[in-house]
Design a protein around this nucleic acid. Structure first.
Lengths: 112, 112
DNA sequence: TTGCCATACCTCGCGACACAAGGCATTATA
DNA sequence: TATAATGCCTTGTGTCGCGAGGTATGGCAA
């Protein structure tokens, strides 16, 4: 129930999180803002999206977490694991293939 | 409950259908195959996806239908209305903005 | 000191939607 | 005479994005 091409265009939040965390360790609240800023407000994922995805990714071994206190603030930093990097590659590849396919239909390219 | 940015990456089946029907009148079964072929099997939407969307689009006035019999086969052809063309433009614009935003995050472009 | 906002974490419940599976009817094919 | 292909459709399920809400701390202004 999770291996096929189901929900073919889903998992974008997951993709974005993995990609951002690849650059540097980040925490949930930070990710919410980073996605908003880097997308110039085109994408605004709330915490209700981010946190569950983070937990799922950690449970699946794609992310590892470490609690750190900064300025008396307790933060949960997430880092990409090797499995997470693999998953990121897979998701990015899928996303690329999918958008290419959609784009070619939108453009109206002649199909073989 | 339908005006905000909710389910931001959804509605791709709708987008593809509107785009294909813009070229020429098509019927459900034909759309299923056309999407599969034009995407080179990257996208395979079943009839359980196509028909409900067609009905919803017609209900909303984006498509008009006409029943025609070909070779003893009864087909329901769908054509794009003016409202449908408008909706197509909107969806295509949204899709473009969304994929651009995602792409820029994936690439890692410097953000202002 | 008393609010209020920002930071930072989290969960619950709703709704939408894509999908598989199935059902019905007809025509062509083996 | 089956079986596949054509052509239409609906129902049920699971997933997932999301808003709303809840907790707690720190800083700042009134």
């Amino acid at each position: 129930m999770a291996e096929n091409n189901s929900n073919f265009m889903s998992g974008v939040p997951e993709l974005l999180i993995l990609r951002l965390v690849r650059e540097k360790e980040m925490y949930g609240y930070e990710l919410v803002q980073a996605i908003r800023e880097r997308s110039h407000d085109a994408i605004a994922l709330g915490e209700g999206v981010i946190y569950p995805v983070l937990h799922a990714l950690e449970r699946d071994g794609a992310l590892s977490s470490s609690r750190k206190t900064v300025n008396g603030r307790s933060r949960v930093y997430y880092a990409l694991t090797a499995a997470g990097a693999q998953r990121l590659d897979d998701l990015a590849g899928n996303w690329s293939r999918l958008t290419d396919a959609i784009q070619s239909i939108l453009i109206g390219v002649q199909h073989a």
